[in-house]
Write a protein that binds this DNA or RNA. Structure first.
Lengths: 249, 249
DNA sequence: CGTTTGTTTGAGGAGCGTCAATAAGTGTGG
DNA sequence: CCACACTTATTGACGCTCCTCAAACAAACG
């Protein structure tokens, strides 16, 4: 678990009102801040802006000036690129506790993709000019940030190879598994993806059409592998999906 | 041009023999070192190992321990990932003057992909533990390194969206254009890709088969857009390729 | 000069996208 | 609370791309 006790309370406060001060428990234990003491976390929080973002409305847009960097406290984000032709593809998802929009770490002055809340979300943000302060003053911050960046690069390469070599069925199976692993919550029936997902979303993750995704999900539902309602998918038999995602023939 | 005068000579020396000392002109003017003075470059070179790598034999392999980082002096590299199923895909190409194998910058302890010379190549390398020394002691080094990393991340995202949304013909056209832009050298007929490329290589860049690539190149040759011999491709009419790569219908 | 590596081309057919129509939820306003 | 609009999902029919299989050729190499 990412959070220690008391965090839910702190989050609720953050969500409910404009508070004079953010609670320190919000950051305690998150990798980029794990080495810092209370007073340092206080400094960081005092420089932060906390804000709620509605489902569907971009936090920032591809190509726009990167003036802030962010930390997701609650919710889920899609990182999305749009082609000149109007197709859009979902590059990856961001879960609570992760930094995002960290263009400044790579000396970029525009965001390379858009960030769109898949569900109502709460994030902290800081102006970019603080990035160098943070890396200079707070031990472990740079290290951990570049580590997540490295993981994200790896993830994207993974998706790329998958896209280039695997058939649609396997890509969809893998995409579902990725979402389940990142955000699955146990229910009576199986493991449910924690945020709203449409067939269109899944097709944007896998480079196919919503029709094909719908057909696949229907078939899998008949076989008892998944169950789905409007905007929600529950995986009943993860192992079967794993097999589908790696079958050789 | 990347190099100042005298560099060809320095390179030849490097290639020909185990020299007592590497020439300083090798690094002068390259972005990661552009802010440094002669003595600093001397230090860096004295810590470097220079080595020649044969076409086709990996400099390092995906998943192996990342113990060194590199700078390509001469030649061209393919950055390659291989799937469990044995398919391989070319993630990007590296040109002279670029850093590569910079896993340490992202706190990784293994290389996320293999680096394979597309042609005979020469590279400098340093043990990873020097990475932090470099970033701490040499102004501009960290900044520039992370900048190239950012560009590379952008490039991969670009390829990913292309792969997910564009038909094979456009992907192949784009791949050719990318190689031409990165390494094109002017000839009488047109612009030639500077390193050996097989149809198989192109199909590994675009997630298709060598057969399809062969058919496309044959067709384009008939139309006077490209010309190709075994392992070499010359683009006669780049504009036509651009049109092919972005045609809407 | 045989062997290996890269290229070309054809024939056939499957996968998956496109087009089309319908149905099932969800939200809004009177 | 119902009517209406809108979004999301389902399913069938059709056919084009592009992969697979197959065979033969051309160039490089020892």
């Amino acid at each position: 678990m990412l959070y220690d006790r008391g965090l839910d309370f702190a989050l609720k406060q953050t969500r409910d009102a404009k508070m004079a001060k953010l609670d320190e428990s919000l950051l305690t234990g998150l990798p980029p801040f794990s080495l810092l003491d209370r007073s340092q976390i206080r400094e960081i929080l005092d420089a932060a802006v906390s804000r709620r973002y509605e489902e569907g409305t971009p936090i920032f847009n591809e190509g726009h000036g990167a003036d802030r960097f962010f930390l997701l406290l609650d919710g889920y984000l899609r990182v999305v690129r749009t082609t000149p032709g109007g197709d859009q593809i979902i590059v990856l998802h961001i879960s609570p506790g992760q930094l995002f929009g960290i263009a400044p770490a790579l000396q970029r002055d525009t965001y390379p993709a858009s960030a769109i809340p898949a569900a109502e979300s709460i994030a902290l943000s800081w102006p970019v000019h603080l990035w160098q302060d943070f890396t200079a003053r707070y031990p472990g911050f740079a290290t951990e940030s570049y580590k997540t960046l490295g993981q994200r690069l790896g993830q994207i390469q993974e998706t790329l190879t998958e896209m280039a070599t695997q058939a649609v069925e396997k890509r969809v199976a893998s995409a579902l598994l990725r979402m389940v692993n990142q955000s699955g919550r146990k229910t009576e029936a199986g493991i449910e993806i924690a945020f709203p997902v449409t067939r269109q979303n899944i097709s944007d993750m896998t480079g196919t059409t919503l029709h094909t995704v719908s057909r696949l999900l229907s078939a899998w539902q008949r076989e008892g592998i998944v169950e789905s309602t409007r905007k929600h998918v529950t995986v009943i038999d993860p192992h079967a999906l794993v097999l589908l995602s790696e079958a050789l023939p």
